[in-house]
Design a protein around this nucleic acid. Structure first.
Lengths: 231, 231
DNA sequence: GCATATTTGTCCGTATGTATA
DNA sequence: CTATACATACGGACAAATATG
């Protein structure tokens, strides 16, 4: 392993901002910092997260860092290999299919449950749609991706089920990992914004079934497109 | 806090068998030990899991125990209260409803997907049914509960989706926690075994829709019964 | 295949801050 | 309000496993 100091330096550079000493426990703050780096693709899949280097860069003890690793591993963002260390998760095509199969189970069902959701829940969906269209308007692709995530989280939120929200959040974070593996075009989400708007409008009009079917088609096509982008 | 030594002694007594020094990491083995204690109701909901006492009882360091706590908290089996410690999760009626809502989303869908499942997957469901009937025959209620869990895991397994299996396993473990909170009759699961058999038979006969509807009714009634037992 | 260096796994001691009797 | 118990967090140590030359 040549270039050790050089590689370590590159890894350390990413964490110039030390973990803020407030709010929750140190381990949880470390999780937040690492998660955002993973979501934004600043840590390439397969990268080993050295305990020594990271602990020094984040200015936390190895013990605390290991607690954070356990959480991230449970979130499937990293993989913990015994006696070898922790690595940024590398997603496969099967992972993408698995994620979309679950989403296809959850999201259309959530859309169909719109009649039992409150107006506040539905307005959150509308808000995410607006957020996405505005981001596209100013050609801000990262923001478009985030808004799209908010849209699907808001849709899942229609079921008012904390556990389901957690599962959905988990899946969407994993999605972003997958994204950086098979890097599709930057404007990948752009064409889907109109579908988001259509689904939202149908739900507002009480046409839950049409909305759900649109969502099903949407997820199917998005999955196919990602799987193609993989090869 | 009177009776401290007495309470600690009672907690320590439960862990007379030290964690076996083999297989995976120590933290993971601690998780396994604690999880099985929680599932079998040997740790009452609300109990505080003292780091000092538990670390001594399990013969592991407090650092290692804390890693295990992070995992168990993410599994929702314990709650981590900042600066106060770790407590056995206490489930509410809303939790039970939330769990059954998710199960009602997953399990009927899994049943309907039986046509795309392999014969090996379906035979695992049959195996769990047989296991349950045998346990009931010998009046072994804990074994009946375990077999019932195996049945529902096997049903979810029909979708051949690792993430869904994880979610399902999670939910079933939580179910067992709920069970010890509102302690329903020991033979709670006994009458449901016949429904399991019926669902399995219908699936084997290719009547997926009838099987799915039976499952829906099953989950609805089981939830209502548990919610009633709560009050 | 072997010797060496690195890194993880695990433990201990301790200082500090927070919650509770 | 004070004292105590406890969790939080750190740093150092060492064995064991792994990676390197």
């Amino acid at each position: 392993m040549r270039n050790r100091s050089e590689r370590d330096g590159a890894l350390a550079e990413l964490f110039t901002t030390p973990v803020q000493p407030v709010l929750a426990s140190t381990a949880e703050r470390v999780v937040d910092v690492l998660r955002s780096h993973l979501i934004e693709g600043r840590l390439a899949p397969g990268t080993r997260l050295s305990e020594e280097v990271l602990a020094a860069a984040l200015n936390v003890s190895r013990n605390t860092l290991r607690e954070a690793f356990r959480i991230l591993a449970h979130e499937r963002l990293v993989v913990h290999e015994m006696n070898r260390g922790v690595f940024v998760r590398r997603l496969s095509v099967e992972d993408v299919r698995s994620i979309y199969q679950l989403r296809s189970l959850i999201e259309p069902a959530a859309v169909r449950s719109v009649h039992s959701a409150g107006a506040a829940d539905l307005s959150r969906v509308r808000l995410a749609v607006t957020e996405g269209l505005a981001a596209r308007e100013r050609v801000d692709w990262p923001a478009v991706g985030t808004a799209n995530m908010h849209f699907h989280l808001a849709v899942a939120g229609l079921m008012r089920n904390a556990r389901l929200n957690a599962v959905m959040g988990q899946l969407l974070v994993e999605m972003r990992l997958a994204f950086h593996v098979m890097n599709p075009p930057e404007d990948f989400y752009a064409p889907y914004l109109d579908e988001n708007e259509r689904i939202c409008r149908l739900m507002e009009a009480g046409q839950a079934e049409e909305a759900a079917e649109t969502m099903e088609g949407y997820l199917h096509r998005a999955c196919e497109q990602l799987v193609r982008a993989f090869g």
